[in-house]
Write a protein that binds this DNA or RNA. Structure first.
Lengths: 346, 346
DNA sequence: TTGTACGCGTTATCAC
DNA sequence: GTGATAACGCGTACAA
């Protein structure tokens, strides 16, 4: 019942541990004959290499650390899902951490991951301050790292981003096209976690650019700060409704907040989209299910996960990434929550 | 830049590695004075124990493996969140795997986890066949294992369950009380992954018991098989609607399916709850947001995660668990999707 | 109360 | 082609 070691296989085959190790790791220099013999023994005895011993020796882990800012947000789980799928194919395990939108938690996670000697790191969302990450990364030979939706000014971190500016522009433009006049926005937090995501900055910019191009004056009173969570959307929407002149449309920087806003609007006795239109961002599965169905900007979630895995694996294979910064596209998905003049759904 | 080892700290303090090790691991026998000195050196030098070396030596990992059957289902993420939170407090990392409702994937995951030498295992949902689990568990000294919502007939696996029978009974009874006559059900899969969850069996039983106690004949034609996913709910509902006499209420074995069913109902031009009422199970966050808001049976998600962590940690501390089987309660949450006679929401 | 020395299972560097 | 053997960093008998 005790575990089978390299040595066990070696003695059984009458070869040395070095040889077995070579076979297991696919080294070139073993004769075809012994290779076959060893391979068979490995199978028969059910030998599995001890990762601890291996990692201790090679000074390099095999698991990939992943820190995600909110496991509760379907956008993130979708990305994680696709990421973990791709990584599994490569035989890599995932240390998953949820930073819960808090830097302290994210940084605790980071410490745990480094203590566990991971092979690579994927940061999804805004879980860790740049300064902290830099400190950790400096400690050793550069750790393959990929950031999703957050740009770090560190050479050896490849960033996987989405052109949210364009998406936000499209969303706002669409609202303008529907005839809405006072278009508000619920943005991300202006400080702390989330504030430095690619998403926050660009979605605000896109919104402003659309207004500008349409010749609509930008009114700061129509922009409320959220926190990318449902409750934050509710709160922000309440502030917006309490304002002097309420908006007749709202673009929220993500779907969770959009849904929160929607509930507040309806609880206030207003109708979506007749009284207030609403557009979100991400296209999480619920967006299509809410009622009215939520117009939103679709993020390439699966693609994000898959690309991150690819980027990471390239780095793991020793290649300094050719393009350490990659930008994907987002696409507007029009549903009922923003189409004023069409019939209400059945 | 090279890593600091136990020995570095030892020489710096002029003590032996054994002493440092003792301090780090909180052994009793070190004098207060040296302890302080060592502790300070540890801090100053930024020493971090090498987990690989430690685990290699102790033959025991520090990470906990978690296999969840569907990361896309908010019920599971909620449980994982709470679990990982509790485990982080204990300084344990989590290897998270998504089995995607497929045994092959789940079992691949299991293999990876065992290769990684985890300290404990948590199975959420139905990811792994009992037979497979038994095989793995037999291989070594018993690995602390907790199963959530799935009962395994293995001595050293503690099972954390929810009394779904009662919840399902309540749900069905509630529908009967609302005056619905032909109450259908969308259940879990009858074979393969999901079929052996606690949830599937008990929710069906509760449904049947309620009918029975109310003196309503059980009609197999009103029960459709689903797969715990949104699409499965849609499909099952389509079959139900295509039946000779359509149900006027449907109890779905989880919320994802309930939501799928709801969309099919509405697309068929029927109204919820006027024409067909619907009740789900789990009380995932979307349930409250859908429109009409979904009546459902609330699972103690946070509690499940937390309890699993506790159970696991007890086992990790060497205690054979007192109650290897623990059953929590579920509670009916009545919302609009099942209340025929009340006004429709604003 | 502290130090010495060995072994955990691998991989890498030699010498054969 | 293959086999000894020395690390990798830590925990822990056991001796002092």
């Amino acid at each position: 019942m005790s575990t089978i070691t390299l040595r066990d296989v070696a003695t059984r085959c009458g070869v040395s541990t070095a040889t077995v190790s070579a076979v297991v790791n696919g080294a070139e220099w073993v004769s075809e004959e012994t290779r076959a013999r060893v391979q068979r023994a490995v199978e028969e005895m059910g030998y599995r290499p001890n990762q601890f011993a291996r990692s201790l020796r090679t000074q390099q882990g095999y698991a990939v650390g992943v820190i995600v800012s909110d496991l509760t947000n379907p956008f993130f789980t979708e990305v994680v899902r696709s990421l973990s799928h791709a990584l599994r194919e490569d035989g890599r395990a995932i240390f998953l951490c949820d930073s819960d939108h808090r830097f302290e938690v994210g940084e605790t996670n980071l410490r745990m991951l480094f203590d566990g000697h991971i092979a690579g790191l994927v940061l999804i969302g805004d879980s860790v301050r740049e300064e902290t990450l830099r400190r950790y990364l400096r400690r050793g030979p550069s750790l393959p790292t990929v950031a999703i939706e957050r740009e770090y000014g560190l050479d050896d971190v490849s960033c996987l981003l989405v052109d949210s500016e364009r998406g936000a522009f499209d969303a706002t433009w669409h609202l303008l096209g529907q005839g809405y006049q006072r278009i508000g926005m619920i943005g991300g937090p202006e400080q702390g976690p989330g504030s430095t995501t690619y998403a926050r900055t660009l979605r605000l910019q896109g919104y402003r650019r659309a207004l500008e191009e349409a010749g609509v004056r930008y009114d700061p009173a129509l922009v409320a700060e959220g926190n990318f969570r449902y409750a934050g959307g509710e709160e922000a929407m309440r502030r917006l409704l309490a304002g002097r002149e309420r908006p007749d449309a709202v673009f929220a920087a993500n779907d969770m907040m959009a849904l929160g806003a929607m509930s507040v609007i309806r609880n206030a006795g207003l109708r979506v989209p007749a009284d207030v239109a609403i557009v979100g961002f991400d296209d999480i599965p619920i967006a299509a299910l809410s009622s009215p169905a939520l117009t939103t900007v679709g993020m390439p979630k699966t693609e994000l996960g898959r690309s991150a895995a690819t980027l990471l694996m390239q780095q793991l294979d020793g290649a300094r990434p050719a393009a350490p910064r990659r930008v994907l596209d987002a696409e507007l998905v029009v549903r009922q929550s923003s189409t004023r003049w069409t019939a209400t759904p059945v």
